[in-house]
């Protein structure tokens, strides 16, 4: 006696909806962010080990046209990474004030606000140090 049809597993599920594609890009964005952190770390190591001259030549490489494109791609991934996680923050960290839930949009706005504030501080440090 033939039985029920076994459950199907699709290898192309991620390409069936935009929501799934964006989730996959979001997960992939962590690779780009991590790669950039490693790159910056290597730069620092080279400065410490090989001195000022080697560091300057590495920076020259980083400002070449090809690396500009790489920077833009990594920036785009970093933006996607931040914005998708900010959008999801209220789900993971619901806040209650006076017995009521803080609206999701307010929590997300708070994350963007904190991001702006930190960016402003970094900008000040960079401008003042430079």
């Amino acid at each position: 006696m033939p039985g029920p049809l076994p459950r199907q597993k699709s290898n192309t599920w991620w390409n069936q909806r935009w929501a799934y594609r964006i989730v996959l890009l979001r997960e992939l964005s962590s690779v780009a962010v991590a790669a950039y952190v490693v790159l910056l770390l290597l730069l620092l190591v080279s400065q410490v080990r090989e001195g000022e001259g080697a560091f300057a030549s590495h920076v020259d490489v980083l400002t070449s046209p090809l690396l500009w494109i790489v920077h833009l791609v990594i920036l785009a991934f970093a933006q996607l990474h931040s914005s998708t996680w900010f959008a999801l923050t209220p789900k993971a960290l619901p806040l209650k004030l006076g017995g009521r839930r803080v609206p999701d949009a307010l929590i997300t706005a708070g994350a963007y606000g904190a991001w702006l504030a930190v960016s402003a501080v970094v900008l000040v440090i960079v401008l003042v140090v430079a």
């Binding site: 909806r17 929501a19 799934y20 989730v23 789900k91």
Partner: peptide, 9 residues
């Protein structure tokens, strides 16, 4: 769970 989020959608 990898937080795809479609369950909620």
């Amino acid at each position: 769970c990898t937080f795809v989020g479609e369950c909620s959608a």
